[in-house]
Amino acid sequence: MEAGSDVPDLVRELTRRADPARLRDDVAFLADRPRGRIHAPEAMLRAEAHVAERLAEAGWRTERQPFEVRWRPGCTDRPGGGRLTPFRFRLHRRLAGANLLAEPPGADDGPAVLVGAHLDTVVGSPGADDNASGVAALLEVARLLGGLPRTPRVRLACFDMEELGFVGARVAARAARHGRPVSGMLCLESVGCFSDRPGTQAVPAGFGALFRDAAGAVRARAGRGDFTLVVHRRSSDEAADLWRRAAGAAEPALPVVTLRDPRPDGPLGTLAGLVVPPLNHLGRSDHAAYWNAGIPAVLLTGTANFRNPHYHRPTDTPGTVDPVRLTAVAVATAVTAALWRPPGHGR
């Protein structure tokens, strides 16, 4: 399967096999209670078991990879806004968690595109949008790709401790540089909340000047939160274009706003965020760990607190997630993962 394959044909094929009821059920199961390695460990193990079971049913081999880190800068998982303020900063003396990594049968050791979503929530929130929606979409990606005649080079990951500062993703990204290589990464973060009402979509302060095209696209939609934001860098231009094309061919068609982060991958990009603080909004999920490791990555998001009034609250419940449009997100992500060929990916 090549990047030049007909995107609409693959979208139609996967859409025929996709099922919004499955995504609705996965969101309902995961988001019936808060889950976190520290504040709700039993719920976290329950969520892990559900994910592993669904991946096994789809034919994927799942490995639980425990990790332990010490003296790791991060943040608290108490409810809060989207910015890492001094009040949210934490230096974690010791954290012990686990990522779930999955591969299709017959996968080789070559570079693969990784689709990832975090499994944990903040304290007190069941996290239907943040981020049961992302995990449900990932599980549907597994089902859809597992049914293709030729399995693409794709791996899946459910990350631990995103709410503590992308801890699990940072461990996984570092391992990818020294173990089984990752050629590119697609991050599903808070992708289930949509609104057709004007004025429901906010834009971060300073974005109007920094990203005129993206801000203008939001204004042109009268501030409706009915789109998915695709945040990418130059290294992942191809993935952003594939996702936009796939979403446009989905049923129903899913509006997309793309935003290119001007920073380079690697440490220089991280330092640029210190100089221009509004840029840090673009790195608020696990994809940032891959950017920092020099791996092309894309963030797929409904913009979290800039749209969803239930963000990090007890009211982030399954009824606020749109399973039909979430299914379109899963289809577009599966198509992009199957067709994207980042540098070093191979054929």
Rank of each mutant, 00 (worst) to 15 (best):
G248P: 11
A249G: 03
A249P: 04
P252E: 13
A253D: 08
A253R: 14
L254W: 14
P255F: 03
P255C: 10
V256Y: 10
V256W: 08
V257A: 05
V257S: 10
V257E: 05
T258K: 08
L259C: 07
D261W: 07
D261L: 15
R263V: 03
P264S: 09
D265A: 14
D265C: 04
G266H: 03
G266K: 13
G266D: 07
G266T: 01
P267T: 13
L268M: 11
G269V: 02
G269E: 08
T270H: 11
L271N: 07
A272S: 08
G273P: 06
L274T: 03
V276Q: 12
V276S: 10
V276N: 08
V276F: 10
P277G: 13
P277Q: 03
P278A: 15
P278W: 07
L279F: 05
N280T: 03
N280W: 02
N280G: 09
H281F: 02
L282M: 08
L282W: 00
L282D: 00
G283R: 10
G283L: 02
R284N: 00
R284I: 00
S285H: 02
S285T: 00
S285G: 09
D286H: 00
D286V: 00
H287P: 07
H287G: 01
H287K: 00
W291L: 08
W291P: 05
N292V: 11
N292W: 04
N292T: 15
A293T: 04
A293V: 02
A293Y: 02
A293Q: 15
G294R: 08
G294H: 01
G294P: 09
I295H: 03
I295S: 01
P296W: 01
A297M: 05
V298A: 02
L299D: 01
L300G: 04
L300Q: 02
L300F: 02
T301S: 00
T301R: 00
G302S: 07
G302L: 01
T303R: 00
A304I: 04
A304G: 14
N305Y: 15
F306I: 07
F306S: 05
F306V: 05
R307K: 14
R307T: 10
N308V: 09
P309M: 08
H310M: 09
H310A: 15
Y311A: 06
Y311C: 02
H312C: 12
R313E: 12
R313L: 13
P314D: 07
T315W: 07
T315F: 13
T317M: 07
T317N: 12
P318W: 11
T320Y: 12
V321L: 08
V321Y: 13
V321H: 12
D322I: 12
D322G: 05
D322H: 03
P323V: 14
P323T: 09
V324E: 06
V324L: 06
R325P: 02
R325M: 12
L326E: 15
L326W: 05
L326I: 07
T327H: 13
T327E: 11
V329L: 03
V329P: 03
V329R: 02
A330R: 15
A330N: 06
V331W: 08
V331G: 10
A332K: 05
T333N: 15
T333A: 11
A334Q: 10
A334T: 09
V335N: 15
V335S: 11
A337M: 11
L339G: 06
L339T: 04
W340G: 11
W340S: 12
R341S: 12
P342S: 10
P342E: 03
P342T: 10
